[in-house]
Design a protein around this nucleic acid. Structure first.
Lengths: 195, 195
DNA sequence: CGAATAAGAGACGCCCTGTCTCTAATGCCG
DNA sequence: CGGCATTAGAGACAGGGCGTCTCTTATTCG
C-alpha cells in the first residue's frame, strides 16, 4: 500500500494567495461587500481563517488586495484619440465602466472601513489627465499651463461624485455633459485659469 | 404604606423617543458610527433593544432619525448677501460646517448601509441654489435661465466630493477656488449654458 | 374602573470576529 | 537524500452584537 502519498495536497505561498484572492472576488460577487465575511472567503478558498489573517489584517485590506489583483490600472493606457474632447470622454468612460465592475456596494463599504485609500485609489486620474492635457498642448489645442489643478481633476471629480451618490450606472449623456458643459468651457475661457 | 406609587417611572411615546434620539447622538459622539450598537444606545437611553427595534428597523435608520432631529435644514435660511458670489460662498460654508459636525465616519457609514438617502439628503442644495440664482437674476447680476441644472448644483457637488474623499475639514480656500475658478467663470461665460 | 397598550428587563439562538492550538504537508538546506 | 523549519488545514474558543421572544407591570384610554 502507498502510505507515503499525502492524503491531501496543500497549496502554499503565492499559489495559495492567488486562490484566496480569487475566492474573495467570487464571494464579493455572490454576497456583496456588506455580507462578505472572513469565514465565507476562507470556506470558499478551502482554507482556514488563520491563513487569511496571517496576510491581511481585516476585511477591507483583503478586498483591496483582491481588487488590485484584478485591476489593470487606468494609468497604464491613456487614451489618445488626437483630440482633447475625445481623450477626456474616453477616460471618463473607462472610469465609469470600472466602477460598474466593482459596484457601489464595495466602494461605499471600503470608504467606510478603510481609513486611507485616497492616495493610491483616487489620485491616479490626476496623472492621466495631465498626460492628456500635455498632449493637447503639444498639438496646439490649448495653451501650455493654461489649466490649473482644480480644472485638471474636475472631470474625474464630477464623475466620481456622480458615481458615489447615484449607485446606478452613469449614462453616457452625463459624461458628455461634464465635458461639454463644464470642462471644455473652462479650458477654453480666455481667462485661462492659473493656480 | 404607599404601595400604589410605581417603583419606577416609565417614559412613553414622544418623550421616550426624544430620549432615545438624544442617546443616539451622544453615543455617536462617544464611539463613532462604526462602533455604535443598538445595545449601546439602548443602555445609554436606559431602555431595551426591543423599544428601538419597534421604531427603527436598523442602525442606519436610527442614526438618520437622530440626525434629522438635530438638524435645522439649510434650506430654511438661504443666505442673502446681496451678491451672487457671497451667497454661494456662504451656503458652501454652511455645508462644510454641517459636515464637520456630523463627521465623515457617520456619512460614510450611512452611505454604505442606507440604500436610499439621496432624495432627502442631497437634493436640498438644488433648491437653495435655485433661490440664490433667482435672486441674482432679479438683481440683474445674471441673465434669467442662463444657468443650467448641472452648473446650478456644481458648487455643492464639488464640495461634497471634496468632503467625501478627504475626511478632513475643508479649508475656506477650497470654497473660494470652487466659486472663483469654476462656478463664476461658467455663469459669466457669454455662451450661457442651457440644458 | 377595567382593558388595551407598550416599556423595561432579560434570555435566546445565531453568526462573525480574532486568537490559539494541534497535526501533518511542504520545501529548503546541509 | 534526509532532517528541519515553516506553515497550511482544521477546529475550538471566548467575546460580542444581532434580531426575536417572553414576561411582568406601569401607563393610558375609553
Amino acid at each position: 500500500m502507498n502510505d507515503d502519498a499525502p492524503a491531501v495536497r496543500r497549496r502554499r505561498g503565492s499559489e495559495l494567495e492567488a486562490a484566496i484572492l480569487r475566492a474573495t472576488w467570487e464571494e464579493l460577487g455572490a454576497v456583496g461587500y456588506m455580507n462578505l465575511t472572513m469565514e465565507g472567503v476562507a470556506d470558499r478558498a478551502r482554507t482556514g481563517k488563520q491563513v487569511l489573517y496571517r496576510r491581511w489584517r481585516n476585511r477591507a485590506e483583503l478586498v483591496l488586495a483582491a481588487m488590485r489583483s484584478r485591476v489593470v490600472s487606468i494609468a497604464d493606457d491613456v487614451p489618445d484619440t488626437g483630440e482633447l474632447r475625445g481623450d477626456v470622454l474616453a477616460v471618463l468612460d473607462r472610469m465609469a465602466r470600472r466602477y460598474d465592475d466593482v459596484g457601489p456596494d464595495v466602494v461605499h463599504g471600503l470608504m467606510a472601513e478603510a481609513r486611507d485609500l485616497d492616495p493610491v485609489f483616487f489620485s491616479i486620474m490626476t496623472g492621466v489627465m495631465e498626460t492628456i492635457l500635455r498632449r493637447a498642448a503639444d498639438r496646439g489645442e490649448i495653451r501650455p499651463g493654461a489649466v490649473g489643478r482644480r480644472i485638471t481633476t474636475l472631470p474625474a471629480d464630477l464623475l466620481r461624485h456622480e458615481m458615489l451618490l447615484t449607485s446606478a450606472p452613469v449614462p453616457e449623456s452625463t459624461l458628455v455633459e461634464i465635458v461639454d458643459d463644464v470642462f471644455l468651457p473652462l479650458v477654453n475661457s480666455r481667462a485661462g485659469r492659473r493656480r
